[in-house]
């Protein structure tokens, strides 16, 4: 289990990355390496060129500006986990990050790498879907923004072109005091989720839900926003039985199945975890948890 031969490039700025991407045959971008390196070691991928992003300047940052959090593509998961800005403005991500891999992998793994790898069960894409994040990519013709809803084109296929680099992501924060919960089921602590549910809720002073976001990960080819449930949640109070009824719709998700978990089991988990996420988010929004 050793990497195959390749040429190594370590550009220092985004421009160089873009031109390398445009000129090299069969390149692969190396960010935190927590997914690419295993695939290299197992020779599941055989690139001719590896372009290392770790020396590229200006891609690691967490900024907040007028209700939007901007995160650089090479920002490490650990930095997000320990960021006061993230804890305050995007607690859903903090909740999710504690379930992402392990301390050693979070020290190296990046948000850009996770979004580009786009594993259907990964936590960070689900958080971005839940938050209506905007992905920023840069290519030979400059920068463009891709709403996260349009980012996954299919199973592990991001909407970045071959000569584009994901440089960052913008996350619109929700109102202060909103409820949030990232609930997942995995066999062991730190494993990719078999299924996850991310819920965001804003609740009015009368206890009625005024804004809702519900995302299911690990079931479809990419994280799925449960739009119908979200709409039906508006005006609801935190009645678990009502949540249960609404979450039954998760059984309709076009689900992946494999020998580890059938599509029916994933759909079933989606109903359970969505309900639990909503309950937890509602309790947090109303100060009960």
């Amino acid at each position: 289990m050793k990497p195959p031969p390749f040429s190594y490039h370590d550009p220092s700025n985004v421009g160089e990355v873009i031109s390398l991407l445009g000129s090299l045959e069969n390149p692969k971008l190396l960010a935190g390496g927590q997914s690419l390196m295993p695939m290299l070691n197992m020779r599941y991928v055989m690139p001719d060129h590896v372009i290392d992003l770790n020396k590229v300047e200006g891609l690691s940052y967490i900024k907040e500006d007028g209700g939007t959090i901007s995160i650089g593509g090479m920002t490490r998961q650990r930095d997000l986990e320990y960021s006061d800005v993230m804890k305050a403005k995007c607690p859903l991500m903090h909740d999710a990050l504690l379930q992402v891999g392990h301390r050693q992998t979070r020290n190296r793994g990046t948000i850009g790498g996770s979004l580009s790898h786009l594993d259907p069960a990964a936590e960070l894409p689900a958080v971005c879907a839940a938050h209506d994040a905007v992905v920023i990519v840069q290519g030979p013709n400059g920068e463009r923004e891709i709403p996260f809803s349009e980012f996954p084109l299919g199973y592990m296929t991001p909407a970045t072109e071959m000569d584009e680099l994901l440089t960052g992501v913008k996350i619109p924060a929700w109102a202060e005091g909103h409820g949030y919960a990232f609930v997942e089921f995995s066999r062991r602590h730190g494993d990719f989720a078999i299924t996850s549910a991310a819920a965001l809720l804003e609740v009015g002073s009368d206890g009625g839900i005024t804004r809702a976001s519900l995302t299911v990960g690990g079931v479809g080819a990419a994280p799925v926003r449960m739009n119908d449930i979200e709409q039906a949640l508006i005006g609801q109070s935190g009645d678990e039985e009502r949540f249960r009824e609404l979450c039954e719709a998760c059984r309709e998700i076009d689900a992946l199945g494999d020998v580890y978990a059938s599509s029916e089991y994933r759909q079933h988990l989606a109903t359970v975890l969505s309900r639990r996420a909503l309950v937890k988010a509602y309790d947090r929004a109303t100060g009960k948890a």
Partner: peptide
């Protein structure tokens, strides 16, 4: 430990 932070050395290239 890479600059004091734990990391998996099988998931890094030596050049890094």
């Amino acid at each position: 430990l890479l600059n004091g932070r734990s990391a998996r050395s099988c998931l890094m290239l030596a050049v890094q």
